[in-house]
Amino acid sequence: MYAQQVDTGSKGLKSLDEMSPEERHFQEKVDGEVRIEPKNWMPDGYRKTLIRQISQHAHSEIVGMLPEGNWLTRAPSLKRKLQLMAKIQDEAGHGLYLYSAMETLGADRDEEIEKLHRGEVKFSSIFTYPTLTWADMGAIGWLVDGAAIVNQVPLQRCSYGPYARAMIRVCKEESFHQRQGYEILLTMMREGTDEQKEMVQDAINRFWWPSLMMFGPSDENSPNSAQSMAWKIKRHGNDELRQRFLDQTVPQLEFLGCTAPDPDLKWNEETGHYDFGEINWQEFFDVLKGHSPCGIERIQQRKKAIDDGQWVRDAAVAYAEKKQANNAA
């Protein structure tokens, strides 16, 4: 999930009777699956929750370019270089239209980005992990984009129109990325050397658990889930989505000829799902609090890019103003 632990500011769900007439009308629209559009009335909490969630989602797309950018200058063939460039470019595009969706709620892109750089808002925990070998480009495409898709497919039906529509395009592109990532790993496993195969298994070992953590803590420990569900921002619980991801991923893992770093992973005939081991939530909460492998470096790099680019943006603005003045004269 690219947005984790989004605070709804809610202290418990209101019943329809407890709501103001405006709130009730809003909730009835949501319940009736009528999309909320920018100019419609919406509760303040709904607006703020969406701004938090969409900005966190957008920041994650942008910060998520960095672990891949780490290997862009070292991609091993023309084809792989082109693929990775296109993928990263898509992510920048996702960031852009997510910021645009967020701006329909009255938030400002530059202000939200400053909040990220000041550490006041988060980006997805997954992008604080380092990319240590080329196989990580495959593992990220397959596992991270795979987990993102499982989360984002239901967001296509999110009650807020601009966010839902942004997700439709994002999902199409992410599916493509996921297949590409898997193909990177499959090529290394099928046609690669022993060293390459070890690289693939090592990448899976490192990205397996962090990918499962992307869905966020169990629903009972996720205080904001109920309100987000009532507003139909969120459609499914964290555990349900995590299980869905796992069930579709394990057969792909086996097809690769690799294993998961989880001795408890096994098919459960009764439930029709895979059972899996305990997630290290301490690691997850540490990462969110900033005690993470590369979180500091990721933000430093983003901040430096924006700071170093100030004079460039200033020049562009000044030029546009001069041109406008000349045209007016």
Binding site: L66, K81, Q89, A92, L96, K304, A305, G309, Q310, V312
Partner: peptide
């Protein structure tokens, strides 16, 4: 490629 993640604006990144 060296500019990836370092551009002065998102639009320039793209």
């Amino acid at each position: 490629c060296e500019w990836c993640g370092n551009a002065p604006a998102l639009e320039e990144e793209i």
